[in-house]
Design a binder for these strands. Sequence first.
DNA 1: CGCCCGCCTG
DNA 2: CAGGCGGGCG
Length: 643
Amino acid sequence: MIPYQLQGSPPVSRRKEDPMDGRRVPEQGRDPATSGHGQGLKTEPCFQRDPLLSSPGASLVSQLLSHTVVSRSLDPCTLFPSSRPVGLPQGYELGAPPAEGAQALALPRTRALAPVSGAGDRESLSDEHLRAKRARVESIIQGMSLPPTPQAPGTGVEGGVGQDREKGGEMSWEGRRKPRVPQPQRGAGVAGRGAPSGGSPHAAGCQQLKEQLCFLEQQLRWLQERFSQVCDPGDTAQPLGGAELAGKAGDRPGRDGAAAARRPHKAAPWGSSPGADGPEGTQEDEGMQEDTGGLPSVARVLSQALKHELAGVTSRVVDSVLTSVWPKAAGHLLQQHPGPGAAARGEHFPAGKCRKPLAKSSPVGALGSPPPEAASLPSGNSLDPHGSSFSPTALRNPHQAHGVGYTLGSAVPSAQEGRLLGQLLGYGHWGSPPAPQRCPPEAPDPHWGAPRLRPSAVRQQRCPLPLGPGEAEGDGAPFTPTHEALTPGHLKKAKLMFFFTRYPSSALLRSYFLDVQFSRCITSQLIKWFSNFREFYYIQVEKFARQALLEGVADAGALRVSRDSELFRALNTHYNKGNDFQVPGRFLEVASLTLREFFSAVRAGKDADPSWKKPIYKIISKLDSHIPEVFKAVGCSQELLRS
DNA sequence: CGCCCGCCTG
DNA sequence: CAGGCGGGCG
């Protein structure tokens, strides 16, 4: 009726927001060197600016070890007793074969925790092992996340850094990103940049691993958290069906209920009032309360199983990292897997103007470059939503640390890592069989990530340790064909990706949907999807912004999107139905900013201008962050459906 | 001209 | 979500 006429009527045809002039603005975020297209397009070499990477391979490891400022109670020395990073005296078997290497490192830690140095009864030490391994992963991740810090293993710097991290959540969002942004190519005089920019060979791999680890850790904790919620007797009187619960926990009152319980106030729709926040803070490591004698046997079993699996996987991840980060030690083992998988998948690119095989340009890698304009963020208080057990660094880094465009070699981290990580996340099947994989055959990987995504596995109550012969690889062909059309699984994946990127370029899409036979049609569809996602997103945000305004909110800065806010729930249920994915904190920041922008704009009456949203879109378009490589996992799309 | 964005409609 | 449309950009 009216609509049509309005639409056509020239006068003030509604609000004809034109696409932002910076059309390619979105690309900006992807192009580390520039914010437009100015100079460097695919300038691979230039991006290796990450401070951490700028140090020679050897010292890289040193840093990993020396920066071991573990969260509370963990003493670096405990983790790495005699192993002195820098010199690495009697070559602490860092490069030792995977499994063993891990053990070697783990033991000391274990001993520290349990004087019962008895390496015999592993069963009873499982917990310690788990913790130890987790601690190690954390420390490594944290270490990698930390600034270059001149080779000062045990200097006081550590302490300072550590504390800083503690406050990580308080640093302003822009403050965290900004630093690296302005950095031109050739290291300016920035202090931290002192380190030479050597060891670029492993740089790429390292960066990716770092990034993936961060992401991985988040997901792991997420899993654990959810797991414990499921098993927690107190968590509503849900029948201990563990498995089934897991699947629904998300939508159902189960989780939300629990959350609500923790935060009764259920603040205003637009978010919780400042100060009154500390989301997961309370139940911190609910997972830590583990073996509480209270857990029903079934739960206990599940708990144990999960712990064991976690331990194993964690251990492997660590090995993987060490191996990649410190190839020298890894001996021949290392072999810079340029990703045969990548090559193999490259063929998926149809003719036309498809980008070159991932092998080089990797628009993806170029991604994550921190938006220069991030400064525009009015966001005063940056949040780190969950000041909980999460190591702040782990949370704040995945999106900024990756910053520099690494990725020169394989855009795909190496089928191996991809696999491991992917499986950890439950994206179990892999179409990339090639992977020269070094994963120990006995690796329980195949089952990993299953706990929640594949209830059946849990239900069977497989024996804790290794793999349950039951469904070994059995289900489904390991080969994922390249789809001609987009499937529901792809849609789901796209939605999750939206949490990282609102304005993906077609190139990026192509690089993340490797199991799809791209065509103009497919590409358009994907782009359309994101367009739709955006539409929904902006509509929601605007709605809440207006609501906040009506409710008398005065300061835009008070607006915040927390995991408890209605807005978040609205968005989450649309992009993350089932709630089986931990929404990256960064998304909350972006959403918060969007909310504030809308709020301010509306309050200022700018909405009178037909294209008042344009500026906002422009801002938001610059906030895309790098999408975890895991999403490239072939089969990921399919697996997602099952969850 | 193709690509993509955003809006609107179904 | 998908179509269709107008529109800006390279």
